[in-house]
Write a protein that binds this DNA or RNA. Sequence first.
DNA 1: CACACACCTGGGAGCGCTACCACCACAATC
DNA 2: GATTGTGGTGGTAGCGCTCCCAGGTGTGTG
Lengths: 328, 328
Amino acid sequence: MTTARRPATLDDVARAAGVSRSTASRVIAGNGFASPTARERVRTAADELGYVPNPAARALVHGTGVRLLVAVAGTDPAVLDDSYVDQVLGATARVCAPHGLGVTVDWVPLHAPERLVRLTDDRGVTGLILVNTTPALLELVPRRLRGRAVSIGVGSATVPSVDIDNGGATEAIVRHLYAGGRRRIAMVTGPPWLTCANRSVDAYRGLMRDAGLPTREVVGDFSVERGRAAAREVLRRWPDTDAIVGISDATALGVIGRLRADGVQVPGDVAVTGFDDIPLAAVTAPALTTASHPVRQIASAAATMVLEHRHAPMCTRFPSALVRRDSA
Amino acid sequence: MTTARRPATLDDVARAAGVSRSTASRVIAGNGFASPTARERVRTAADELGYVPNPAARALVHGTGVRLLVAVAGTDPAVLDDSYVDQVLGATARVCAPHGLGVTVDWVPLHAPERLVRLTDDRGVTGLILVNTTPALLELVPRRLRGRAVSIGVGSATVPSVDIDNGGATEAIVRHLYAGGRRRIAMVTGPPWLTCANRSVDAYRGLMRDAGLPTREVVGDFSVERGRAAAREVLRRWPDTDAIVGISDATALGVIGRLRADGVQVPGDVAVTGFDDIPLAAVTAPALTTASHPVRQIASAAATMVLEHRHAPMCTRFPSALVRRDSA
DNA sequence: CACACACCTGGGAGCGCTACCACCACAATC
DNA sequence: GATTGTGGTGGTAGCGCTCCCAGGTGTGTG
């Protein structure tokens, strides 16, 4: 069976079934009329020949593309070397696989968002998933892809979004810290341009203001390294800090690493929280208190929305739960 | 410029440049004759119109596909929810992006490898990257894709492979443990069917035999959870164990988590090593002694080999270095 | 001046598929 | 018997592209 055959075309199937290509096409596509007899014969012929429609031909005639683009905004191409992006890509690819659609990733420079236009000019791109978006970027989504673009994180009037409630999740974390008696709470934030990370920062600020407490912020990114550096800076500027809210688990782990190296007890002296609930969060020492972040689910939902070409609702929020462990 | 235009076709470019479609095609493709004048005019016309070739049309006429398939073997579809697979996918997608090629992932059941044939019957698949392969699976790579298939891990006579020297890396780890005075060394292995994980196990066995020491093996997978369970089993069966070699960093972290929960000192009582050198390995407590595993580089190399359609050399090995930290 | 041999160009077929249209049977209606 | 369907069918155009081939222009040789 696995001979050096050339893959069967629709013509082959039609010939084998003794019908015209049109009829075969109708049966395979499942639309239009076809007698039960014809249907049956085409089906078996297709089965025997191991017929699989050529997606390129289909895409060509339909005028649709052949892959989804995952566009990641950031200051440099290194954003693509990121487990978050990897997860989004993985989940997207899984959703696309049964449809014979491929996936590509590319980077959109923060300082040159118009590159998105170049990327989407490609007729091969039939859908768009935006990651780490800024409002400016959303404006650049070409009309052709309206309704076939979904943003993970912040959305706009024309581009629907799917995410968790970052603000709410961060509030839960800060409240937990407060309930544990912490008052001098610092935060290691995300990159300032990242709208959805800012929702966390806003939540932190709001809660602190409501409690009449001053904020203590250090800018980070989502990396372990920045977490380490940020911890040092926090301690230098506010030595009496008793809690640090990390924008991600990696950040928190970096913070904890630094703190322990400096002989600071976690959570004894300083409580530390993460965000994401990565698998490792449960086995680190101390185990991380964090907020769950179902990245795969989010990305799957986004990809499904793109494929099904349905944009309502404009804003989908997945639940995020506070995961209490030992670090705070 | 970002009007509701229909993307430019080659005909549009040709018309704008005042040449025939054939000439325009030759200029764009960069093969065949074309006068400098024609070349220039087509180039500027294409630029102005923002012309991007339609990959579906190209694929159709070339008879090539439109995406790479990353096929992951495993006992269940959950293998796709794995950071290793995600990284392979991410790196592959990055390599493919400039070529207008998409990427798909799919799962090949260990108990039904023939599903690979179904997956590769799709004319859209123009290249294949195999992950977690078994020799049986490699036999099923269709002739059409010979020379366009690369295995990450173990290869065969017809399918080239790229990986690190698992055996050598594991030897370095075990030697390090031995040099540190450890003699009762246990190993948490990978799934037994996974050939490249077995290379590590073989290295461990070989070294232990040479040293006249008995082996202590517990079967794991690459997960944190199995690491925890395996640690408990090791301690139950061989309470005097003084070192545990994990098949992955996640495994090692699971082991350490369990050990600490039982009040066992790491590395005081039991030394633990990982494998992969994930970013977090440096900030865990204790920081993980492990072997580096440049997954992204490996996957990039594999993808490049597929795209360039060059199979020699049949076996590419990336270097892996022992990373000495605190856990062993 | 004929000839070869460059270099350059446009016409046209066709990749595999879908969608439109024309057509044919056969029934039901007037 | 002429009309209007209705379920079923095949012919064919064309999606955007590449490549082959026939037919140009020039320049250099016999």
